[in-house]
Design a protein around this nucleic acid. Structure first.
Lengths: 350, 350
DNA sequence: CTGAAAGCGCTTACAG
DNA sequence: CTGAAAGCGCTTACAG
């Protein structure tokens, strides 16, 4: 049953033409060749009958382009939740790339162990035409590719010290809608639980929150602001307990990630505080929102579009748009509010 | 800054040797060549100084082996939860393969659209040395590879109509421990919510549950058995409401997947029934268990080991163990119980 | 120990 | 319209 591997040579013989003609018929693009409809058919039929599959390695070697795009995942996290984003993106990236004739070779960020090839070497040795980074851990991992002139796109949380194209999310729309939503319901005491990190991705969430409060003529109270040092369930949990102990606890909590929200919900559950009757909760990410109880009102991120844009950007750079060559491009995709059942009017006169 | 791509030829020139020697020094394996320590050093130094990276395509073409393993993801699901398993596996598979000098090329199952290359063609054209399938949707997608003599490993939910190596999970240990745990706590009215499908993976969970009850001298009551047609939150939700309406509701619920458990928890939350004080819940999968409120007692699956085994199996087949050639192997990995906070003594005399 | 040559499968000028 | 040849970068017998 094991079928021999078919080459262009065999097709040429069966169709009674030269290998050059086979190559031309099968993938066009050769200036001065013209072929009769009859010949073309014979070649195509022969290829199908023999079950021909071109040898990528040979094509890649000859053409000098591999039709492969490297995808560097974010680091493995202890909780899988943070990875879910990574997974969604990688799946959508793969699908989109396939549609456009490119394949994805995935690598995990290098654990500095032993004799293992580095991520850079792996991707270089496959002569990838471009590389997409999801949340790169360090600029050192991105730079080698830039230095070699390989097109790069960084997703979601770029290393800004190295100049590449980026696809990131603009938190402002989603967060301002979220705050407006709470204000319309009658909330004025709105707490923020989040990551106090220095990366623009962390900061922008908080800044957008602050601005949105201001736009609604609300004050920021320090006691309602809980900035931690990571995206962590535990911090969400502890911060929420802290908030509940205040003399004047908030009537709504905005958590800047789903992982924080899980901690918040756990704390509220323990304290027998009902969502949304006793307190409203809005999360950011919307990975889990639809699955939890109650289903969470959330700021949603357009993951499918992020992947699409990334693929489009990088293929554009690989194939050269023509129009504006060589320039890095930066795509901002808007977030949006998804209202579910975790928000309601405050039950305490505010 | 863009560095030229370095070939063995340049290394040979710089080191003052022939390309054959370069090849030998860089990757051993050539019968009748011996090289002085000095020469070896010169070659290695030259390679490093020039920043040499072997061209995979050339190596692959010449060697007839690509050092690439195809990884076929499960289909994109509507809810991402089911994909999380896929993601964990794919990450661990990638990492393990990298450690052993293989790279993963990931493909999404073919959406039958348009002119898109099929998954089979993609993988064939890259001349992958083997393919790992995570939960293949149909035997038709696996067969072409088997017919071409390409080593295959199917994970978790194999298509049994096609003979390949498999890595699957043995539910018995985890489930019998789970039931024993409930029985020791004093439960006798234990309900089962799950997928009533025909695949051994679905059936074995239920059968193990039934056997475990019997082993503990408990009867199975039909009204406590809820078999649906998928892994779905909605079914978990509806089934739980049904159970609560019984004259004699169960004091514990075993859900055969985390996605069912989410539905169950949502229903209990709506009905203001406390877990574990009013009712105990055990889930199967343990993807979410640690994140929910309360943290779920769960039957855990050893995902890291599954990935490890898959990589080991397939590389074994690719490189030929020598010992037992050609024979498909089947690995069963045990599940185990992780006790958390969703189980307690029943508060109703049973 | 070393060098020259063939060939993996393909594509692409180039000459007819 | 077609064929013969070169060459992508590598590895591997084979002859010295």
């Amino acid at each position: 049953m094991k079928s021999r591997i078919v080459t262009t040579k065999e097709i040429a013989i069966r169709a009674g033409v030269s290998r050059g003609v086979v190559s031309f018929v099968l993938n066009g693009s050769n200036g001065n060749i013209r072929v009769s409809e009859d010949t073309r058919r014979r070649v195509i039929d022969a290829a199908n009958e023999l079950g021909y599959t071109p040898n990528q390695a040979a094509q890649s070697l000859r053409r000098g382009t591999s039709k492969m795009i490297g995808y560097v995942k974010r680091e493995i996290q202890k909780t899988w939740l943070e990875q879910t984003v990574s997974h969604l993106l990688s799946t959508y990236v793969t699908t989109n790339a396939q549609k456009r004739g490119y394949n994805i070779i995935e690598v995990s960020p290098e654990s500095q162990t032993s004799n293992q090839q580095s991520l850079t070497q792996i991707l270089m040795s496959h002569r990838v035409d471009g590389v997409i980074f999801d949340w790169p851990i360090s600029h050192t991992v991105v730079e080698p590719f830039v230095n070699n002139g390989i097109p790069i796109v960084q997703l979601l949380r770029p290393q800004y010290t190295v100049a590449t194209s980026t696809v990131i999310v603009d938190a402002s729309k989603g967060i301002s809608d979220a705050v407006a939503h709470l204000v319309h319901l009658g909330h004025t005491r709105i707490a923020y639980i989040g990551h106090g990190g220095n990366h623009p991705v962390d900061k922008s969430r908080f800044e957008n929150f602050v601005n949105s409060l201001k736009n609604n003529c609300l004050n920021i109270y320090n006691e309602y602001v809980k900035l931690g040092s990571s995206y962590s369930l535990t911090e969400g949990y502890e911060f929420t307990l802290d908030l509940l102990k205040l003399k004047n606890p908030p009537t709504a909590i905005f958590t800047s990630s789903d992982i924080h929200a899980l901690g918040t919900l756990r704390a509220l559950y323990h304290e027998h505080i009902n969502v949304p009757n006793d307190i409203s909760v809005i999360s950011y990410d919307d990975m889990l929102g639809n699955l939890l109880y109650p289903p969470l009102t959330s700021v949603s991120q357009p993951f499918e579009e992020i992947a699409e844009s990334a693929v489009e950007l990088i293929i554009g750079e690989i194939e050269g748009d023509g129009s504006n060559p060589q320039h890095n491009r930066h795509i901002f995709l808007p977030t949006y509010l998804t209202v579910r059942e975790s928000t309601a009017m405050p039950n305490v006169p505010s």
